[in-house]
């Protein structure tokens, strides 16, 4: 294996409350190559904040610290805000959850995709346009010329998310963070969108961090899995080994998944006394 793409050691993200600072990520560590890593956990487990912290986008008054946060040989913590901006989008990008809220309502889809390219590269107008149309085709939009002129409220959720993918991949980043990319979509289009992300990530040899609360989905699309609970990693394993997980939290999550062929009347509830803390 070559040098890792991303190394994170002891990442902590905290927010002030009136009872003192509360840590939402408590000492997260992992190493990522050009592979697909899944981060799973329930709501509030700190998985989304991890994604934002990698981009150094935890907004004040939130605070992030880490012993080590290195991306492709670049110490992310030592970078100026300006240097971080050159990395964001261009080298590390993030697909957001819900295209209804994560696209600017008063800019055309084409303009928003073009902007992602333009902030990173100075290109003539025609070249930008050509790349935007090419990218829209790459995300399986059949009528790119027409779609580029639409506003976000004029496209469906699935199409909005494909626009999002096009926007985040157009500067050809090395690492893509997908923060619950399908949880706002209909089940019928979820697989299409994930297949698309998977295919583009493989084609371009990128690293992927897929953040989700869906164990099954993550084990299908990822090589390795990190399970988070209350800001801590409780389990880290190869995706295919997930069924052999040892931590009671992970075991509890697996047990709570409904199966096609089963006849259980009730799904088991997580027994939180099995592990410390919460």
């Amino acid at each position: 294996m070559t040098a890792p793409l991303l190394e994170i050691d002891n990442l902590r993200v905290s927010f002030p409350t009136h009872t003192g600072r509360v840590e939402v990520v408590k000492g997260l560590s992992f190493t990522l190559g050009r592979e697909r890593l899944g981060i799973v956990g329930e709501s509030g487990s700190g998985k989304s904040m991890t994604g934002r912290a990698i981009l150094r986008l935890v907004r004040s008054p939130g605070r992030q610290v880490a012993d080590r946060m290195v991306f492709d040989g670049i110490d992310l913590q030592a970078q100026s805000e300006r240097a971080m901006r050159a990395l964001r989008g261009a080298r590390i990008s993030m697909i957001m959850q819900d295209p209804k809220f994560s696209l600017n309502p008063v800019m055309t889809v084409g303009a928003q995709i073009a902007e992602a390219l333009r902030v990173q590269e100075r290109l003539p107008h025609r070249a930008v346009r050509a790349r935007v149309l090419e990218m829209l085709e790459a995300v399986r939009i059949h009528n790119p010329e027409r779609v580029a002129r639409l506003y976000p409220h004029e496209v469906s959720g699935g199409m909005g998310q494909r626009v999002m993918i096009a926007m985040m991949l157009i500067p050809r980043p090395d690492l893509l963070i997908a923060d619950e990319p399908t949880s706002a979509l209909d089940v019928s289009v979820q697989a299409q969108v994930l297949d698309l992300i998977d295919e583009l990530v493989r084609e371009n040899g990128m690293g992927l961090i897929l953040i989700s609360h869906d164990l099954g989905l993550v084990s299908r699309y990822c090589d390795r899995i990190v399970v988070m609970n209350a800001g801590e990693v409780v389990e880290s394993c190869v995706a295919s080994e997930l069924n052999n997980a040892t931590h009671p939290y992970t075991r509890g999550l697996i047990a709570a998944q409904p199966r096609m062929e089963e006849t259980r009347d009730e799904l088991p509830v997580l027994d939180r006394s099995a592990w410390s803390g919460t």
Binding site: R52, L55, L57, R85, A86, L87, R88, G89, A90, S93, M94, M96, Q97, D98, F101, S102, L103, N104, P105, V106, M107, E115, A116, V119, Q120, M164, M167, M168
Partner: peptide, 24 residues
């Protein structure tokens, strides 16, 4: 959320403010 999107793209802060947040 779309403000975060713009920041993820690497858009400079003044453009996040005037080019994105101010328009609506």
């Amino acid at each position: 959320e779309y403000i975060t999107t713009a920041r993820v793209k690497g858009v400079p802060e003044w453009r996040v403010i005037w080019g994105h947040a101010f328009k609506p």
